[in-house]
Amino acid sequence: MFELTAYDGRRRVRGSVYLSIGLSVLAAMVVWVYPSFEAEIDLNELLAAYPEPILQVMGVQTMTSLAGFLSFELYTFGWIIMLGLYLAYSTAGTIADDVDRGRMDVLLSMPISRRRLVAERFGAMAVPIVGANLFPPLVVYVGAELIDHPIAAADVLAVHLLSIPYLFACAGIGLLASVIVDRAAIAQRVALGVTFALFLSESLLSGTDAEAVGAIAPMRYYDPNAVLLEGTYDLLGAGILVAMTVALLIASQAWFRRRDV
């Protein structure tokens, strides 16, 4: 039981450690640059210079505090966009790559159902998702203390814990693309395109008559601003992301059971 998850997970450990270190370096750079940024630039004037659509797309509320600066520069770019796209892209190769390279017949010859194969392959994505959130919280918290702009430890921990359901939902988009498309490269492009389109739809349609369309976007249910600036933890949103992930997994299993490989 879970042999495929364990095998795939072990293969992803090293890359996940490198990913976590890279994100930690990014977090350290953002924290380190903030004091000079705050001292040399009128942040309110800078924010006013941004076009309103850009502020809306990036979810910028304020940069006059380290928490607001981190929310914009680190978590919107690093987690919502970059990491979300990476997980969708990476997961899109889990099934499609084996089909593309002719290895799927070997896997299906084993005493394992197609549903279990999809679930176990998807389960291995927990390694990069959790791994990416191992070191950065410590870097952010300690860095904020060192530059004398402390952030509550509970808020730092929460913004990372609540990102996990979001990243699983992005991975679920990649999984669905992986079982629908035979070619791994195409599946990965589809996953990237769909995930980014969902990000844009949620950002641009917010506050308009078509706002309801953005309800299908995982980005609606993960808000670093609410956590870091208001200390608000959206547990309902996290629950919706879990349900969204389960729905994507079930849909992927159902599609893969019926397709000819």
Rank of each mutant, 00 (worst) to 15 (best):
A154G: 12
V30C: 04
R259D: 14
F199I: 03
P136E: 15
M1F: 10
R189N: 15
T5D: 09
D98P: 03
M1I: 13
S252E: 14
V159I: 10
V33I: 10
A243Y: 10
D105I: 10
L200E: 11
P35M: 12
A152D: 14
Q56R: 06
A169Y: 01
A185C: 01
W32E: 07
G239F: 14
N133G: 12
P136L: 08
L117A: 07
V25L: 15
Y86M: 05
S71P: 02
Y34T: 15
M219P: 04
T91N: 00
L66H: 06
Y141V: 07
V261T: 06
D155P: 05
L200I: 01
V130C: 02
A191I: 02
L175S: 01
A119S: 12
V57N: 03
A238K: 00
A254E: 08
H149T: 10
N225I: 05
P150C: 07
F168K: 04
L83M: 10
I21F: 05
S178N: 09
L200S: 07
P128E: 04
S178Q: 06
F2L: 12
V213L: 00
A184H: 12
G207A: 13
P137D: 10
D182C: 07
A152P: 00
V156C: 09
M219G: 15
P224W: 12
A48E: 15
R189K: 13
V60S: 01
V25M: 11
I173A: 01
F122M: 15
S163I: 03
S16P: 11
L228M: 13
M1R: 13
V17W: 05
N44H: 12
Y86E: 11
G239I: 05
S163Y: 06
G143N: 05
Q61L: 10
V31L: 03
Y86L: 10
D100P: 03
G131D: 10
A144E: 08
V127G: 14
E38S: 13
L4E: 14
T245Y: 11
R101F: 11
I164C: 07
F122V: 02
M1T: 15
P150G: 00
A119G: 07
Q253A: 09
D8V: 00
A184R: 09
L205F: 09
V246A: 09
T91C: 01
N44E: 07
M104K: 01
I80R: 13
G193I: 15
Y75A: 02
A247C: 13
A212I: 14
E202P: 07
G59Q: 00
V227I: 15
Y34F: 12
P136W: 09
I81H: 04
L192Y: 14
F69G: 03
L235S: 08
L161H: 03
Y233I: 06
V213I: 12
L235M: 06
L87H: 02
V140M: 13
A226K: 05
L175H: 09
A226M: 02
A67E: 13
L176M: 11
A49Y: 02
G237C: 03
M219F: 13
V227M: 11
V57W: 05
R114P: 02
D97P: 08
V179T: 05
E211M: 08
V194M: 00
E52N: 03
V227A: 11
I240Q: 14
G214C: 00
P137Q: 05
